[in-house]
Design a protein around this nucleic acid. Sequence first.
DNA 1: TCGATTGTCAAGTCACCACTTCACTATTTT
DNA 2: AAAATAGTGAAGTGGTGACTTGACAATCGA
Lengths: 105, 105
Amino acid sequence: MARIDIGRVFYALGDPTRRAIVDRLSAAPSSVSRLAAPLEITVTAVAQHLAVLEECGLVKTEKVGRVRTCRIESAGFDALQGWIAEHRTMWERRLDALGDIVDEE
Amino acid sequence: MARIDIGRVFYALGDPTRRAIVDRLSAAPSSVSRLAAPLEITVTAVAQHLAVLEECGLVKTEKVGRVRTCRIESAGFDALQGWIAEHRTMWERRLDALGDIVDEE
DNA sequence: TCGATTGTCAAGTCACCACTTCACTATTTT
DNA sequence: AAAATAGTGAAGTGGTGACTTGACAATCGA
């Protein structure tokens, strides 16, 4: 299991087309051209997006015959959730520590 | 409470400098120029990043006198967590539904 | 084996965004 | 009042990334 670059995950999900792909794959696995159909872009463009999503552990693909089947992968989501949890506790602990005192230098 | 565009949140966090800002603000509130110091960019650039972070509910700022104080805001994080939870349940429910049967047309 | 389907590779185009500079305003300190 | 501090606004530049096209490879159905 390769370590995941959280920056790439955010970057990947920053693009609306890639989020649309993730949406569809969350509902059901799909081939590349089936993903391309509703989005109005070329199959090539979709393949490029898939490479980005795969690189950061959000999607896993497998080619059988001439069809590449794409599925959601949890690793990227796990990394995301971890990042949020980390930051949340970081600042919530701070808020707990001092009632509402301001911080110095 | 304005509704948050999850796309903007991902976009905002896709940039390493903005993540660095969020990191620092998670630890403690800060002024604009204090944020700029360790990052090797101009105060102007930092202000631009802050505008992005503020727009999507990750940061809240308040100007008192000539100093603008920046703090973490939870709205953006809440939206993030919601998005992840949504997608996670979407595909996990699917996995539960059918043992390991493939899906048709 | 021929044609259609599914995807890949390489290269190019165009818009956008992170950053800069420079001029400026407002507040605080001496 | 003068000088220093903190930030804002407008405009420009360069690099990156989302897309395209066109040529190709491999697999599948007739």
